[in-house]
Design a protein around this nucleic acid. Structure first.
Length: 885
RNA sequence: GGGCGGUUAGCUCAGUUGGUAGAGCACUUGGUCGACAACCAAGGGGUCACAGGUUCAAGUCCUGUACCGCCCACCA
């Protein structure tokens, strides 16, 4: 076997990916196996892979690979999202770079250009998934603007429209003046900036004084229609109903009474601008006030603003403030922390703006989703998100589903001559449906989340009634996603799936951790704190990157990424590689009969326990526990102990068969269990294993089924002769694990004694002594402690000693022993033991403890005290001897 | 303003139903014997954020405080 002593991922990973794909392993097997389905969260076509993606999709790949091994027909359905706003702005920029502009080229040409871009560069992230080894079913790749996907979206819209769920309304929405579209609450960010609070005097029309109002946006006064005060506010009670004259504008507006103003804030009087503030809008509705719109789609002042028309809102603010001051209306300017809303996409300050939009009523749908969670049809992992989810649904506003963009699903509403709206699949269908002439189609497109809300079923052929995928694979088993889109997306999918299919879209929602930088900052390209996963794959391989992320994945909400850990992961790969090489090099001759020694039983027992832990951990999304168990089994147990112990027998043809068998079994099981985390290297090594009944690929192999006798929890008399041979302990109740680990502890102690004496590890010393029972572990202990002969008794001359596990160990002292070092070691030991003894004694002296603690605990403590006291005594003897010299 | 998560070794994190703290990395010392120096062996290192409480016993359960992070919220 000519395998390099260093594992080189680059030569291996992509080759296996192609072979898997060629073998059709990414498609569900069918054949009566239970289905396991995930529809991946479709990444934006504008995106490129970041660490969060690398984690999210690796988790899904892990689940798919694991479920395939446990006998499922696995479908992981990939795709991408057209990402309305994001793509629109990319294409906008593109056009501007080309010296054109969206408005110049018009809707049709714009869309052509957008599709061109989509075909050229809208698929990067998909290619990056392949590099990470993700076994997704590319034959079912979907895009939210695919022809049949569009049909699904239209159908949903039309049905909701006809049922009255979707309606047209005039509301104050978040307006992004750069993107010139409405955006939803959840796509905006609230921030506080240092700003000013302006106090302005509004005089009564009859000249009888004035009312002072406070505002952070003085320019909106141009569209004021009233001033409101709280009904309980004594200062204004008598004045309500009087008329004020709006400064600069001269319009007469009423002083009204409403519960909205907080008498404690400012002057207690609030100017009301219904078209540009959601609260003011509510007030306006309650009082039937006019709602003049002051800002246009670019946030410039409209003709409503008189002399200020055409100015940008901020420019207008300056002018208005100075004009107010000049004319004596400005009372005061205070520094003030003002809350602003910023568009997530554009980074621009969002303006609340009254406009006509399409809305979807949410109350009934939200009830469906809440119910599903309550009944346990949808479970969140970690569970805490369940409550957050439900609370949000309880306070849900209607959903503004229209966007003033071109890239997306155009609202399928057509208008008759008389202005009646009809929702239909096409212009012709609308004419047929209404029996009237249609004059135009609505210009808006739908919110991207409207279409991605259908993802779990629109990707499976819905609404085609004959779609077999839908029958076979819906509902999906789990949705793996980040917590920031629980409301934006998860809730929508739940509502839409329940409403249209009558079943939840996914049974479980696993919320994975946010990937942060090493010092806990957000990873972000713009901050320069982002790390490109592709660079890391170049350096250490996809498996190492996957291990790095997955081994930190559990129920935590944050995950700190550090490049150092990728090196650890790479080292682990290398360890797996070299240990496997060792096993392979030692495979022939490969015949004989099993003659299991305690150490063999020990490793098999550890394997048995590890399999259980890993399986349960995978089943419960506790991936870090699975990774830790596998790491520990492989490195600490199999490599550090078993292989070292087994070397003696492996070198002898007479005895080599059993350890070969044990190693091969263990390696095969380990590779299988590790495969979902590190698919490539495990597949590569598996391909070299000379085993019977081998699967064509590890990827398609079955999860290990280990016989119960591996568990090692046997006492003599179970019928296996090889086991009876070493049932050592007189009581017959000690497990294989405990027995062998006791030997290992003794080995460690001997090695430690050697280290104290500066004997190089690996250098054989002629003899060591022991007093006590070794239960047949003599040879193992001697070889692992690099001692030629382990003799019972005590050496004649001076020696260095230790006591543990009921055994006294002695190594005769050589010529050049560092007395001071020895003394120090003994003293440290003494102090430790003394502290331990004191603690135990105190506990046992406490009658309450003896009386109330569980009896087995008391017994354990008594035994511990006896042991510690014995060891302390011996350490003190040794100290005395040493100091006497 | 409300809610959630976190605080354990120098760093990153584990820690099952309460029984007296673990791993990896880093550090110190020694080591290239045919799997592996991306390695091996031995070692040092922690009042488990703080203050109370429950208990024979608290990293673990309860209450409060501080700091960090996240989410939600209509204060002009």
């Amino acid at each position: 076997m000519a395998l390099e002593s260093r594992y080189d991922a680059s030569g291996v990973e992509q080759a296996w990916y192609l072979k898997w794909e060629e073998a059709g392993l990414f498609q569900p097997e069918g054949g009566g196996k239970p289905a396991y389905t995930i529809t991946i969260p479709p990444p934006n076509i504008t995106g490129s892979l970041h660490m969060g993606h690398a984690l999210c999709y690796s988790i899904q790949d892990l689940l798919g690979r694991y479920k395939r091994m446990t006998g499922h027909s696995v479908l992981i359905l990939p795709g991408s999202d057209h990402a309305g706003i994001a793509t629109q702005s990319v294409v906008d920029k593109l056009l501007r770079k080309e010296g054109a502009s969206a408005s110049q080229v018009g809707r049709e040409r714009f869309l052509e250009r957008a599709w061109e871009w989509r075909h050229e560069s809208g698929n990067t992230i998909i290619g990056q998934f392949r590099r990470l080894g993700h076994a997704f079913d590319w034959s079912r790749l979907r895009f939210t603007l695919d022809e049949d996907y569009v049909q699904a979206v239209l159908k949903v819209f039309i049905e909701w429209f006809d049922r009255g769920i979707i309606y047209r309304g005039k509301r104050v929405v978040n307006w992004d003046p750069v993107l010139k579209t409405s955006v939803s609450d959840i796509e905006t960010e609230r921030r506080t900036i240092k700003g000013k609070l302006y106090f302005i005097r509004y005089p009564f029309t009859d000249g009888s004084g004035d009312v002072v109002i406070a505002t952070t946006r003085p320019e909106t006064m141009l569209a004021d229609v009233a001033v409101a005060v709280h009904p309980s506010d004594e200062r204004y009670k008598a004045l309500v109903g009087k008329t004020l004259t709006l400064p600069l504008v001269g319009r007469e507006i009423p002083l009204i009474s409403d519960v909205y103003p907080d008498p404690e804030f400012g002057s207690g009087a609030v100017k009301i601008t219904p078209a540009h503030d959601p609260n003011d809008y509510q007030v306006g509705m309650r009082h039937g006030l006019p709602m003049p719109v002051l800002l246009d789609e670019s946030a410039k002042i409209t003709s409503e603003g008189g002399v200020y028309a055409g100015l940008d809102r901020l420019e207008a603010r300056k002018r208005i403030v100075s004009d107010l001051e000049e004319q004596g209306f400005l009372v005061e300017i205070k520094d003030h922390e003002i809350p602003i809303i910023v568009g997530e996409r554009s980074g621009e300050v969002i303006e609340p703006l009254l406009s006509e939009q399409w809305f979807a009523s949410q109350t009934d749908l939200a009830a469906l989703a809440m119910d599903a969670v309550r009944k346990g049809d949808i479970k969140f992992i970690p569970e805490r998100y369940e409550r957050i989810f439900n609370e949000w649904l309880e306070n849900l506003h209607d959903w503004c589903i229209s966007r003033q963009l071109w890239w997306g699903h155009r609202v399928p509403v057509y208008y008759c001559e008389d202005g009646t709206p009809v929702a239909a699949l096409s212009w012709a269908a609308a004419e047929q449906k209404s029996g009237k002439t249609i004059v135009r189609q609505d210009d808006d497109v739908l919110d991207t989340w409207f279409s991605s809300g259908l993802w779990p079923f629109a990707t499976m052929g819905w609404p085609d009634p004959s779609a077999s995928d839908l029958k076979e694979f819906y509902p999906t088993d789990v949705l793996v996603t980040s917590r920031e889109i629980i409301f934006l997306w998860v809730a929508r999918m739940a509502m839409m799936g329940l409403d249209f299919i009558g079943q939840v879209p996914f049974r479980e929602v696993y919320i994975y951790a946010t990937v942060l930088t090493e010092d806990g900052k957000r990873m972000s390209k713009s901050l320069g704190t982002g790390v490109d996963p592709m660079d890391i794959i170049e350096k250490v391989g996809a498996d190492a990157l996957r291990y790095t992320l997955l081994s930190q994945t559990g129920y935590n909400q944050d995950l700190r990424y550090s490049e150092r850990r990728t090196e650890d992961a790479r080292n682990f790969c290398n360890k797996i590689w070299n240990a496997s090489r060792f096993v392979l090099m030692n495979l022939s001759p490969y015949t004989g009969e099993l003659d299991l020694q305690p150490e063999d039983r020990w490793l098999l027992s550890r394997l048995y326990a590890t399999e259980k832990v890993v399986r349960e951990a995978y089943d419960t999304y506790n991936i870090q526990e699975a990774a830790a168990a596998l790491y520990r089994f492989f490195w600490s147990e199999m490599c550090d102990w078993y292989i070292e112990v087994a070397k003696r027998r492996l070198q002898n043809a007479e005895t080599s068969y059993t350890p070969q068998w044990v190693l091969l079994k263990s390696l095969e099981a380990f590779l299988t269990m590790m495969h979902p985390i590190m698919p490539h290297i495990t597949e590569e090594i598996y391909s070299h294993l000379p085993i019977e009944g081998k699967s064509a690929f590890l990827m398609s192999a079955a999860w290990p089924t280990l016989p119960d006798w591996f568990s090692g929890e046997y006492v003599s008399g179970n019928g296996e002769a090889t086991i009876d041979n070493f049932q050592m302990n007189a009581t017959g109740t000690v497990t294989i694990e405990a027995q062998v680990e006791r030997w290992f502890a003794i080995v460690r102690s001997l090695r430690s004694l050697r280290a104290t004496m500066d004997i190089e590890p690996g250098k054989t010393i002629p003899e060591a002594y022991f007093e006590g029972e070794l239960d047949g572990g003599d040879a193992l202990i001697a070889s692992q402690s690099w001692v030629t002969e382990l003799k019972p008794g005590r050496p004649d001359g001076a020696c260095i000693s230790s006591t543990l596990e009921g055994v006294d160990l002695h190594i005769p002292l050589g010529e050049s022993v560092d007395q001071a070092k020895l003394l120090e070691k003994l003293q440290r030991e003494e102090a430790k033991l003394l502290a331990e003894q004191t603690g135990l004694a105190a506990r046992l002296d406490n009658p309450q403890f003896v009386e109330r603690a569980k009896p087995e605990i008391v017994e354990r403590e008594k035994a511990a005290l006896a042991d510690v006291s014995d060891r302390l005594l011996k350490v003190r003897e040794r100290l005395a001897t040493l100091q006497a010299d």
